Simulated scan of single mutants.
Amino acid sequence: MGVKIAKAMGHHVTVISSSDKKREEAMEHLGADAYLVSSDAEQMQRAVDSLDYILDTVPVHHPLEPYLALLRVDGRLVMMGVIGTPMQFVSPMVMLGRKSITGTFIGSMDETAEMLEFCKDKGITSKIEMVKMDYVNKALERLEKNDVRYRFVVDVAGSKLHD
């Protein structure tokens, strides 16, 4: 959704992923302008000082320095993935480029309503996989295996529920 919304706002969007697996989806289906493989040192080096913002959605501990290096002067790394361990970074990476690290969960009710209205006006929809109630256990197994693109929605009304 972040890619779609940023594009609708007129931004140049680069998707960063650890492998090439999501490239086609990011470029063809989400509308990203560029794709960067974080495990490719050469690609990462070419992208140094090229981004204004990074929305970091990774929910596990990871080094911040490779991403901080991608930010331009006054760039901002926005942490959105909940990580249960302390984050560490080398302070000159932030200080030398006047970069900042911040975080967010979700906006206020008014901001959420504004974003939903924006999505409606721009025709932005989320990618979901609709499942019936009898598939919920399988869906949970797939969630554990990270085999979901991007959200499951349970069709309660369409499921045959017994009293």
Rank of each mutant, 00 (worst) to 15 (best):
M1A: 15
G2K: 09
K4Q: 15
K4G: 03
K4D: 10
I5G: 04
I5D: 01
A8V: 09
G10I: 08
H11G: 14
H11W: 03
H12W: 08
H12P: 08
H12N: 15
H12M: 13
T14N: 10
I16N: 10
S17K: 07
S19M: 11
S19E: 11
S19C: 13
D20Q: 11
K21Q: 09
K21I: 13
R23P: 04
R23H: 09
R23N: 03
E24S: 14
A26I: 02
E28A: 13
H29D: 12
A32H: 03
A32G: 00
A34Q: 01
Y35F: 15
L36W: 08
S39V: 03
A41Y: 06
A41D: 13
Q45R: 05
Q45E: 10
R46A: 15
R46D: 13
R46C: 04
V48P: 11
V48G: 00
V48W: 02
S50G: 15
S50P: 12
L51N: 05
L51I: 02
L51W: 00
L51K: 03
D52T: 07
D52Q: 05
Y53P: 14
Y53K: 07
I54L: 11
L55F: 14
T57D: 03
H61I: 12
H62L: 10
H62T: 09
H62K: 15
P63K: 14
P63H: 08
L64V: 00
E65M: 13
E65A: 15
P66G: 00
L68M: 02
A69L: 06
A69W: 03
L70T: 10
V73L: 06
D74S: 11
G75V: 08
G75W: 08
R76D: 06
L77D: 01
L77F: 05
M79T: 01
M80G: 07
M80P: 03
G81V: 03
V82A: 12
V82Y: 07
Q88W: 02
F89N: 09
V90R: 11
S91H: 02
S91M: 12
P92S: 05
P92E: 01
V94A: 14
M95R: 01
R98Y: 07
S100T: 09
I101H: 00
T102L: 01
G103F: 09
T104P: 02
T104M: 09
F105G: 03
G107T: 06
E111M: 00
E111D: 13
E111G: 04
A113M: 10
A113L: 12
E114P: 06
E114M: 07
M115P: 02
C119H: 02
K120M: 05
D121P: 01
D121K: 04
K122E: 12
K122P: 12
T125S: 11
T125G: 07
S126F: 01
K127W: 01
K127Q: 13
E129Q: 13
M130D: 04
Y135H: 12
V136I: 15
A139Q: 10
A139N: 09
L140T: 11
R142A: 04
L143S: 13
L143V: 15
L143F: 05
Y150E: 02
Y150W: 07
R151C: 07
R151S: 09
V154T: 10
D155I: 01
V156I: 15
A157I: 07
G158K: 02
G158Y: 02
G158R: 02
S159H: 02
K160F: 06
H162M: 07
H162V: 10
D163E: 12
D163H: 15
D163S: 14
